[in-house]
């Protein structure tokens, strides 16, 4: 662990060396570059994601924070003309190693998207889909239980328990997003990636999701991309600031927001640009 953590000083963000490993880094990205065709979207990002914490990525639009997030479960593979270089280690394994099966990786690293995207199926089938394709439930009763547990963890059970067979697309936006979170945790991932999960929701639904993120932190490692600095401050323990495809600064959330070390970070969090 310690050895794999030695980094090129050029790319080291302002962070005390080794502290991440001490806290138990779940994911370690090293010199990660992403190209979309000719466009160099992510430049040499080296960053640790700690286990059992919420890490938020902030930065202006087009800064590469979502791109980096999608590197962590290889969702970028589905985009034509996208190339990823560098290494991303999860529990000491390079997830871009050809030996790694991307399907199994994504079962370990769940994802929630900006716009709620429930499948046009029933609420029950939405949650049961993941366990079904991965064969997690031995019988119907187990599957039922998984669905109920996931909905409960996502704080949605009380609202939908009487209409498990109605379509998931019929729920409100906030409920749909919680359904998507329930769907993601149904396959019991280790990491949950959230790509601006609240940007399509109203303040009340947002508050519920934020509360949920805080509860989920106990069992899952969470990475969240957000445009709202208040949200980053509220839900995350660590914050990384991206700008123009580069990781500018990463540190404890409190430190980033009260005492940023980099001029750009300070400019962004005080609202001078972005």
């Amino acid at each position: 662990m310690e050895n794999s953590h030695v980094r090129d000083a050029m790319h080291t963000p302002t962070e005390t060396e080794g502290s991440a490993a001490a806290m138990g880094a779940k994911i370690q990205a090293q010199g990660t570059n992403v190209h979309y065709g000719d466009k160099h979207a992510l430049k040499d990002v080296t960053l640790d994601i700690r286990a059992g914490e919420v890490t938020s990525f902030i930065g202006p639009s087009g800064c590469g924070k979502s791109t980096f997030l999608r590197c962590l479960n290889r969702m970028n593979d589905t985009i034509d003309g996208c190339r990823v270089s560098g290494t991303v280690m999860m529990d000491g394994e390079d997830i871009y190693d050809p030996k790694i099966d991307v399907v199994q990786l994504r079962a370990r690293v769940g994802m929630v998207f900006q716009k709620p995207n429930p499948f046009p199926k029933s609420i029950y089938d939405n949650i049961a889909y993941g366990p079904r394709i991965h064969g997690l439930a031995a019988n119907k009763d187990e599957l039922d239980e998984m669905v109920v547990t996931s909905l409960e963890k996502a704080g949605l059970l009380a609202e939908v328990k009487d209409r498990m067979d109605s379509p998931g697309t019929g729920l409100s936006g906030g409920q749909q997003q919680r359904l998507c979170i329930a769907r993601a945790i149904a396959i019991n991932p280790e990491v949950i990636l959230m790509d601006e999960p609240c940007s399509a929701l109203d303040p009340i639904a947002t508050a519920k999701i934020e509360e949920l993120i805080d509860e989920l932190r106990e069992n899952y490692t969470i990475v969240i991309v957000t445009h709202s600095m208040q949200q980053a401050a509220r839900v995350s323990q660590r914050t990384a600031f991206f700008h123009l495809g580069e990781l500018i600064e990463v540190g404890d959330t409190e430190q980033i927001f009260t005492n940023p070390r980099h001029k750009l970070t300070q400019g962004y969090i005080t609202g001078r640009f972005g």
Binding site: N73, M75, T78, F113, K115, N117, P118, I133, R183
Partner: peptide, 24 residues
């Protein structure tokens, strides 16, 4: 978004097509 949702759950391409895209 439908495809992304299925891929993010670790569905393979053919599972995504059979279970999500064609039904939708």
């Amino acid at each position: 978004a439908m495809r992304d949702g299925a891929y993010a759950l670790g569905a393979t391409k053919s599972e995504t097509i059979r279970n999500v895209i064609v039904p939708a």
